[in-house]
Design a protein around this nucleic acid. Structure first.
Lengths: 233, 233
DNA sequence: GCTTGTGAAATCTTTCACAGCA
DNA sequence: TGCTGTGAAAGATTTCACAAGC
C-alpha cells in the first residue's frame, strides 16, 4: 500500500525486481510479512502450525499459504505442519530482516515524529538512526532516540550513517527533492507518506502510502453496500 | 497499496466486492485515486491530457490507463485525449468522494494526532468528525478540529455523528475490540494502522496499513541489488 | 496526423485436487 | 489418518496491436 498503498496492489504500486535463487512472486512477497506476524502471535500457543490455521490467522486461503511457503523451500512436515520458530527464521532471512536495517525519517512534523516513536519499526529489526527537518525551530529537538538534524546536512549524514531506508513525511512540495537527495545519499528503499507521488530510479524500491488515497479506495468499496450510482450523466 | 492495498493485491489486502453498473476490477479501483492526484497536478498545465502523459505521471503503462478509464465509460476524444476537469469529475463520482464522508479516529496518540491534523483527508472531501481515546488524560484535549472523547462513548457517538469510516491507531492489544465497536457503530470502512491485523465482517471494507510490514516488503525488494542469499542452510 | 477504445495474447495469481510422505 | 507440496485449471491483470474516430 500500501498503502500505503499500500497495494496492494497493491497496493500501492512500487518498483519491482528481485533475484534470490529462484524468483519469488511479488504477490507472495507482499504476504510474507503478514505470515510473519501471524506466526509471532501463534508461537505462544503451539510449536507447530498447519497451513489451514496459518491461513485463517493471515486472512487468506490455505492452498495459498502452502504455495507461498513452497517458494521458500520445503520447510513443512507432511501430516504435522510447519515448525513455527524455524519457519519464522526462514521468512525473516528471505525478507532480509536479519540484518538490522537503518532508517532515516525526513520531516519531523506530526507524522514524522509519530513514526519515529512508533514501536513497529524497532520491534522488527529496523533502527531509526536519523531524523531531518528544514525548520530551524525543530532542529536539535529530541525525537525518539535521535535528535533532529538540519535538512541541509542530509547528503553527508546519509552516507556517514549508512542509511538503507528513507521515510518521507515532508509536505507535498518538498517530497520529490527529498527523494532525490535520499537516492543520491545511497538509500535503496523509500517509503513515501507525502500526499504526492515521487519518482525514483528503477533500482530503488519505492512504496507510496497516501492516506487520502487509502480512504478513497475504501470509500469505493463501501459502495458495494450503497445504492448504485445512476447510470447516465 | 500502501496500500496498500493495500495494495496489491496488494498492497494491503482487504475485503472486496462491489457493484456499480458493470463491475470495475479491483486493480483498477486501486489506481483511480492515483490518476485523480496526477490529474490534479496536471490541471494547471493543460485542459486535456493524453493517456501517455497521464500514464507517466501515475507511473503505469499507457494501455493500462486507457483500459482502466474505459471501465468508467468513453470520456476521451480520439486524436485529442481526455478533458482533465471532466475526467476528474467522473473519477470522483465513481469513488464516491463527492459525498463528504465522515471519519472518526480512534487512538489519540502520536499517530492518531498526526492523522487528525494531516491535510490529506480534508483536501479530498473527508471530514474528521471525532477522535477517541481511553486515556482520561487525553480526553478533552483539542486535536485538529475535534476534541478527544472517551472511548467508552464510541458506540453512541458513532451512530449520532453518522460516521462512515473508522481509523484505528490504538495499540495492537486494543485493535480488534476497537474494530468490533466500530462495526457495531455502523461504519462501513476501517483503515487499520495498529501493528496487528483485525478481522471484520464481509460487508465492511478493510485496509490494513502496518508500517513495519511496509518496510519489510521494501527491504526484500532492496535485495534485488544485494548479493543473493546463500542457497543452503 | 494523433490518440482512444478494445479484442486477443501474454502473463501473473489464485484455487483446486490429489499424489506422496510422516 | 492428516497435512504438505505441486501440477494443472481457473481466473484476473497487464500488455500488445490495431481498427475506429477526431
Amino acid at each position: 500500500m500500501s498503502p500505503c498503498g499500500y497495494a496492494p496492489k497493491r497496493p500501492g504500486a512500487g518498483t519491482i525486481s528481485s533475484v534470490i535463487g529462484h524468483r519469488i512472486p511479488e504477490a507472495t512477497v507482499n504476504r510474507l510479512p503478514v505470515y510473519l506476524r501471524a506466526l509471532a502471535e501463534a508461537s505462544s500457543s503451539s510449536p507447530t502450525i498447519s497451513s489451514e490455521l496459518l491461513a485463517e490467522k493471515a486472512g487468506v486461503n490455505a492452498a495459498q499459504v502452502r504455495k507461498d511457503l513452497s517458494h521458500l523451500g520445503s520447510y513443512g512436515t507432511r501430516g504435522v505442519g510447519y515448525e513455527v520458530g524455524y519457519l519464522m527464521h526462514q521468512i525473516s532471512r528471505r525478507l532480509g530482516v536479519d540484518s538490522e536495517l537503518r532508517v532515516a525519517i525526513v520531516g519531523a512534523g506530526n507524522l514524522g515524529q509519530a513514526l519515529a516513536t512508533y514501536g513497529g519499526f524497532a520491534s522488527r529489526g529496523f533502527q531509526v538512526v536519523a531524523t531531518f527537518d528544514s525548520d530551524p525551530g525543530k532542529v536539535g529537538h529530541r525525537v525518539g532516540t535521535t535528535s533532529v538534524r538540519p535538512a541541509s546536512t542530509m547528503s553527508d549524514v546519509l552516507l556517514e550513517l549508512k542509511v538503507d531506508i528513507g521515510v518521507v513525511t515532508t509536505p507535498a512540495s518538498a517530497a520529490q527533492s527529498t527523494a532525490d537527495v535520499l537516492v543520491a545519499g545511497g538509500v535503496s528503499c523509500i517509503l513515501n507518506f507525502a500526499p504526492t507521488t515521487v519518482v525514483v530510479p528503477e533500482y530503488v524500491a519505492l512504496r507510496q502510502v497516501d492516506l487520502g488515497v487509502e480512504l478513497q479506495i475504501l470509500s469505493f468499496y463501501r459502495q458495494s453496500e450503497a445504492a448504485p450510482v445512476a447510470a447516465g450523466e
